[in-house]
Design a binder for these strands. Structure first.
Lengths: 333, 333
DNA sequence: GCGCTCTACTAGCGCGCTCTAGTACGAGTA
DNA sequence: TACTCGTACTAGAGCGCGCTAGTAGAGCGC
């Protein structure tokens, strides 16, 4: 910066003004300084910039690397953040890199707010985080924690899916659970309620799982083993999310079970891959773009008005019927 | 930091030493300072830290949000970077956020090196970037640019896939191209060479596309339209990558074409989703973990020995045969 | 001529940390 | 005793910016 200032024959302060696009420099000087900077290859150092101004205008986003729905959300976040003149820092959680670690990285990089996509963390962790900084939790709802929430009305989505299956004649409808995953408790509850409402309480069955393909695969294996022992397959499965549904589909299809003739499968999320399954996955759509928009807006608004209380946005999900669900198999089949 | 120092009754410098895990503080003081810091909720500010020490020890990673293979790479990158005591900053390219923009963000955050996953950028852009900083290009090979390369021997992979298909009796083998995507030129060339080698030159057909599901879908539609006009379907397709293969599979399967009975499909990458397709996708496996390891090591080694010339790592791909490829359909069928 | 305002610019402090060059002091050594 | 040496610590400069308070000079009305 000093080099640029000297070469352009102005003070460092003026260079600073110009690079911040602030008024206070003549058009002529502005052009000259920018030209010199370009020649030298100068680019403002955001570390120093961050340090000097109190604010970083940066939102941190914690996501799970393999969660395809998260990449849908990230796309939306980039778009909205740019609109509002902020920046984004991504930090991924993986097998060997915990959520806590990912969030720590964001905080130490001076993110003003943290957006957590589908967090699995303890409620106390979220609450503490929310008190220390502005935090938004997407998908994962933790009552009484000091964070904003953006999620879909899980109950509504599950209800639509269940009504759809019951209308098709299904009674033996199994739910693959999402474990401690975001939204799973609500989905599980809504599944149980729907079974009760349809008088299918005695048929209700929840299979433990998580939000990965693995739990779908394992459930598939379980079903096949049961079938080999003479038990009938369920006629429909409501998976905890799309990935779980895909795992199930794969396992069953490979074993010769035909979907939806022999069994219907419904997913959850409508991640961008779900409509790319060869048969098309019937699933509950969450609007990733809108969720991202809310998350960013909540964060930015709380940053600009710190006295604001955390809020909650509940979006409406929508069942998308594709090829993986169909009428109940013929009794004789 | 000053607060911590005061409350613990030591100088700021000593607090600094302790937080950098450096020798020069007694165990007793160390514990006391850490306890005080914890009480206050102090966490070293990496912006200031960055500014103060010359180095950031941070590698920037540019990736394409929806490219599933990239998430596989990222997982590997996090692991290797941690092992070497560096940090990672992710920056995603999306529809509305160009590669250039994503890279700019990384540079202004003081990344010492940039790892580009499957870049589409102009060779001149890469070369310039490589001269300004340490850059590693994964998958995309740009001869004579001043960057490290990590990629697989595309030719070998394609050859294996083609030999596999020819062995199964296929002759009308079509290639869906990856356009300007990383590796596509090499794959296209290898496809043509393989057709020639097998005496199938006259059957060679390359359909323009890119590395997304869309190009698979469009190719599927094209095939269906051709079939409706009386032309025969090809018997096998070598897709530009897994996503393209998945798009094709979806379109054809929905239209009643059975894979692999009516048509064989081979993908490329073996991204973590490809073995989750219900029928299992035959594909050319690239070892994401190993590629990530090389990329990080190249970057770090060049950072620590700046006189090092850029290098190239060519890994061996391996055909993974799953359910989407099979023998040529019966002539009468 | 004077004071006034407005534009275009500058001086220099401070953001929170790292790091070099030091000091103070007790233990060991000749 | 005088000296080194090692351990535990401190003072203070400086990293590259942003920002506040200020100046110099042009233009204006009276």
């Amino acid at each position: 910066m000093a080099d640029v200032a000297e070469k352009a024959g102005v003070s460092r302060a003026l260079v600073s003004i110009i690079f911040r696009n602030q008024p206070g420099a003549s058009e002529e000087t502005r052009q000259r300084v920018l030209r010199v900077a370009d020649e030298i290859g100068y680019r403002p150092d955001s570390a120093a910039r961050l340090l000097a101004r109190g604010r970083s205008r940066t939102l941190g986003v914690m996501f799970t690397v393999h969660q395809t729905f998260h990449t849908d959300l990230i796309e939306g976040i980039y778009a909205e953040v740019e609109r509002l003149g902020y920046e984004v820092l991504l930090s991924g959680a993986t097998q060997g890199r915990s959520e806590q670690k990912a969030v720590e990285a964001l905080l130490s990089h001076r993110c003003e707010a943290v957006i957590l996509l589908g967090s699995f963390a303890e409620p106390s962790f979220l609450d503490e985080l929310g008190r220390r900084t502005v935090a938004v939790s997407v998908s994962r709802r933790v009552p009484h924690a000091h964070v904003d929430f953006v999620h879909t009305a899980e109950g509504k989505g599950v209800r639509q899916a269940m009504d759809h299956l019951v209308e098709l004649g299904h009674r033996r409808i199994v739910h693959i659970d999402g474990g401690t995953g975001p939204g799973s408790a609500e989905r599980r509850r809504a599944y149980r309620a729907a079974m009760r409402r349809h008088g299918l309480e005695s048929e209700a069955r929840v299979i433990p799982g998580d939000h990965t393909e693995r739990s779908g695969i394992e459930t598939g294996r379980l079903f096949l083993a049961e079938r080999d022992q003479g038990q009938p397959l369920p006629t429909a499965v409501l998976a905890g999310n799309d990935r779980s549904a895909m795992g199930l589909l794969m396992t069953l299809t490979r074993a010769g079970v035909e979907v939806p003739r022999d069994l219907s499968v419904v997913g959850y999320d409508d991640s961008h891959l779900s409509h790319l399954m060869p048969i098309g996955l019937t699933t509950v759509r969450q609007d990733a773009g809108l969720m991202a928009e809310y998350a960013v807006r909540f964060a930015v608004e709380r940053l600009e008005k710190p006295e604001l209380e955390p809020r909650e946005a509940v979006l409406d999900p929508k069942l998308v019927v594709r090829g993986s669900s169909g009428p109940i198999p013929e009794p004789s089949a």
